[in-house]
Design a protein around this nucleic acid. Sequence first.
RNA 1: UGGGGCGUAGCUCAGUGGUAGAGCGCCGCAUUUACACUGCGGAUGUCGCAGGUUCGACCCCUGUCGCCCCAACCA
Length: 930
Amino acid sequence: MSEELPKAYEPQQVEKKWYDFWLKKNLFKVDPQSKKKPFCIVMPPPNVTGALHMGHALNHTLQDVLIRWKRMQGFETLWQPGTDHAGIATQNVVEKEILAKEGKTRHDLGREALIEKIWGWKEQYGDRILKQLQALGASCDWSRTRFTLDEGLSRAVRECFVALYKKKLIYRGNYIVNWCPRCQTALADDEVEHEEKKGHLWHIRYGSLIVATTRPETMLGDVAVAVNPKDKRYSKLIGKTVVLPEVGREIPVIADHFVDPKFGTGCVKVTPAHDPNDFQMGLRHQLPQINVMNADATMHSNVPEKYRGMKREICRKHIVESLQGQGLIEKIEEHTHSVGHCYRCNTVIEPWLSEQWFVKMKPLAKKAVAATRKKRVRFFPKRWEKFYLSWLHEVRDWCISRQIWWGHRIPVWYCSTLGLSDSWTLGCMSERTSVRASERTKCPPIVAIETPKKCPKCGGKNLRQDEDVLDTWFSSALWPFSTLGWPDKTPALKKFYPNNVLITDRGIIFFWVARMVMIGFEMMKKEPFRHVHIHGTILDELGQKMSKSRPETCIDPIDIINKYGADALRYSLLLLATEGQDLKLAESKFDTGKHFCNKLWNATRFALMHLKNYDGKPDSEANLTLADRWIFNRLQTAVHSINMALENYRYIDGAQTLYKFIWNEFCDWYLELIKPIVADNHATQWNLHRVLETILRLAHPFLPFITEELWQALRQSSGRTVTTGHGELHRTGHGELHRTGHGELVEPSLVVAAYPKPLTKIPFVKEATEMMLIQTVVTAVRNLRGEHGVSPRQKIQGFIHVASKNKRNILMKNQNDLKELAQISELQFIEVSQKPERTAVAVAGDIEIYVPMQQLFDVGAERERIGKEITKTRQDVASFEGKLANKNFVDRAPKEIVEKERARLQEHKERLQKLESALNSLSLEGRGEG
RNA sequence: UGGGGCGUAGCUCAGUGGUAGAGCGCCGCAUUUACACUGCGGAUGUCGCAGGUUCGACCCCUGUCGCCCCAACCA
């Protein structure tokens, strides 16, 4: 026997010890050569600059529960960890730091130096979030940790880019894109967040017309005014021209169906270089595109001199003032509209014309849709499937080039043999567009996995790589196979692709899930994963998303781990994680998990105290008490439902079942029942041991740390001869042996112990029913005490009448338990006629328990109590009678339902009768007394 | 404008076509006992509103109100 456990669970001392032990024993390490069935989850790679937040905590708890469960079930489990290089975010972080520390911008440093600095930063801080995941208990194979920008994954990105380019699924084009003037890069459509903003609608006179605009500063790039062809007001003007104020340019009036005659004045200024709709309109009418802004959203040199270099917001002010001065502002209206913001830095997005690389999405989406229809990819809960399909149906081409330096540089080279200047790489995209090196040389771009030595067309050696890098999500899209070694045909890739399940938040279904499915099919010909489990989003107490910009809304998981323990954090989250529903969180919620851990801790403490003299040897089931049999029945029922719950991603059901079983059955009833006898009953000791040991295995995926601590303590307490219930231990594939050869344990850990398997037939069903009867009677007596304010410890005398012979036998046989739990000193089984005078009565079904009043019970209170029960029972009886009096019900309802109602009516009638007679005798007594 | 979710006890949320559940909180009782991070007992609901289907609706259908999320449009 080891030292006794402390009185309360102290997670801080336990967690680190076991996590280190698991790592040291390589228990999370996968063996791709193993013959065991594979089970693989890839972690949604957290942002390398990130710190663990509650969303991660929930997401990784769910993954860990699943992976630990499967590992214990004997699967070869891989939980693939890693981080994402998060191009824009990471570059922003490091740029800010350099500016603060050295006062330098990235341009002062230059590309190579900045990238070097970022790698340095990554080496120093990049594993912070992974360490935090370890504190949570995440059982990933850390030896396989990958980073989207590491060498292998970069090769995968280049392979994929080249393959898609060759299939004409990647193209380069001059389009209007979402441009963040602060990050100075293009963004994909879904990287733009729209916010409702109060603004103005300025009505500006353009010669004979009045246009309405929310962005007067873009008028400098206007090339036309459009009206609806059916709009009679303006039909005469179509084909005419007007003079653009401020600029003096003559621009045509065109007719286009896009224009809504009912909005504003019905006249739209057309600025193809600064508005996506105008861009399309411009293409339809072959209009020029005049870019009036620089990359930083200051005004370009092609606008009137007085506006050049102004920020767009300032320019707007000046233009409006100038127009007002000329009397050209006809009206200013309040106008609310949604404005796009950069999802990384919240700067207002500028729609901007530039040359970018795109992925053609329609053909990819088609395959993904087909596969989803064929159930190759299934969503849990199912509704997210529709959500994802509807996005795929309307998918637009994906802008994948980013004008930043941190990321996978686009594997495209341009031949510049003719000795052109570098002008095409300048920051201003319009200039860059106007001078294409490749166009001048007439050599096509070279798209290659390896850096080319010379131009295959002209043999020129003056090659220059495209300056842009790829969207981070491009590399994330390859994650399910790039992490397994692709493009090499590794054993891991063979064994673990497709992955079994992806667990994530709905927020990245478009960004990531859909793109993985599309790219997975395109590159691997197979779905990346079979199931997608979408869990809820964590909200703060007020139901708002937790946001770094409002730190007061955030609860830091690491704080919670320090204060409550990782198991408490995990378990509390699991109890809140309703299927796919968002969860409101307040710190107080973590008490539940903490209390539960402490309960389990103390139950084990109790067991260890009472197992001190247990020899660790099995006994015979024949020697088990009713309580022993009952708890074994309840245990097996729990085993069954917890396995079912996990099978269906219903973590909350699993966690709740565990809670109820451990707290309300094992602790509240079983431990109380065995208390008086366990110390010298070998069979019960054996049963207590096996049930507790199974509980710890059952609970381990939910509560990895405390269960390991307790399981090891239990193991040591009974020496090494104890086998693990129904289980044997699994080999992990690496390092030492962890299983029982023939009952002998070598370096065991709960991590690789067998998960309790549901038995084909749940045992001791009869005993479970018997126990229920005892519980009913005990509860009835306790209720009586409670209602009369009689102390739970105050022993009372009891007389019990049981109409059914069978039930009476059961109760007689187990009267010691009954007496113990109900604190009855003397219990007599009687006929109704033998009922003593002056008693309080509890009625449970067809059983009556009479308790002599003595000084403990108050006649008045008892009359009142019974009166209340009678009222309620009468209501019940009336309700059943009403139902059964309804001919339609009796004729049409299923027979068994009608029978059930009849039985219930009978039961309640009897109960009523008993209560009435009890009240009656009390009343007589009352009169007698008076 | 379209899609989706939610509305059940004071709070946070489960739930099933057959008399409404849990945790927390609240009230009463218990104090050398595995655990006060405890035990025993109790109270608490027009299941958003209105219709419909059904023998029977919290559950299915229709409408409606409120809150939230997503997408599209917004000159």
